[in-house]
């Protein structure tokens, strides 16, 4: 029983930090600070994955998102020398309208889904679904065709990125 409450407290703490740093991503002026806050958000989401007994997803989230994609963002920001607060806010109504729109969307989503399923997630401890052997079996057995197709997607993305990055295409 104590462990269950501990789990809930951990969820609330991680969720609080995640939402706070997500807000800081949006509201910070400096793009580098935004990237660092987004890394913090990804770490709290990885903590939520561990609470859901999805350890491998949590590790992959930290390695791929916080490790690779965010470094790519940082690299581009530093390459383009954007690490200064260069954002002229032309229209003050735009900010207000965006916050109102996002808030309305939040109200609609939460209002329609808050009593969707109030039952607890039942098997937090004995579930073996998030472990790597089970995930690998499902990935290479049920999802083999999408897995192979995603390699074609990566090839296309790689070719596209190289083509876009070239200075002048003959």
């Amino acid at each position: 029983m104590t462990q269950d409450y501990l789990q809930r407290y951990l969820f609330l703490i991680l969720g609080f930090f995640g939402v706070l740093s997500a807000l800081m991503v949006v509201f910070t002026k400096n793009p580098i600070h935004s990237v660092l806050y987004l890394v913090l958000t990804f770490f709290s989401i990885a903590g939520e994955y561990i609470l859901l007994n999805a350890q491998f997803i949590a590790i992959v989230n930290v390695i791929v998102y916080a490790g690779a994609i965010m470094v790519l963002f940082l690299f581009v920001i530093m390459l383009l020398n954007l690490n200064k607060e260069t954002e002229p806010h032309k229209n003050p109504y735009l900010k207000f309208a965006a916050v109102v729109t996002g808030g309305l969307m939040l109200i609609v989503l939460v209002g329609s889904l808050k009593m969707a399923d109030t039952t607890a997630i039942a098997t937090p401890y004995q579930g073996q679904k998030g472990l790597i052997s089970n995930l690998g079996f499902v990935l290479f057995h049920d999802f083999l065709l999408p897995f192979e197709i995603s390699s074609i997607l990566f090839l296309a993305a790689m070719v596209g990125a190289v083509m876009l990055g070239k200075k002048d295409i003959k």
Partner: peptide
């Protein structure tokens, strides 16, 4: 009380998604 209710995750995801929508709408960078 056993574990975390499912709708807590739904609400957390809704909040994060709405923050993302807000960011797309009002940042110019």
């Amino acid at each position: 009380v056993r574990g975390i209710p499912l709708n807590w995750f739904i609400i957390l995801s809704s909040i994060l998604f709405s923050i993302g929508v807000m960011g797309v709408l009002f940042r110019r960078n």
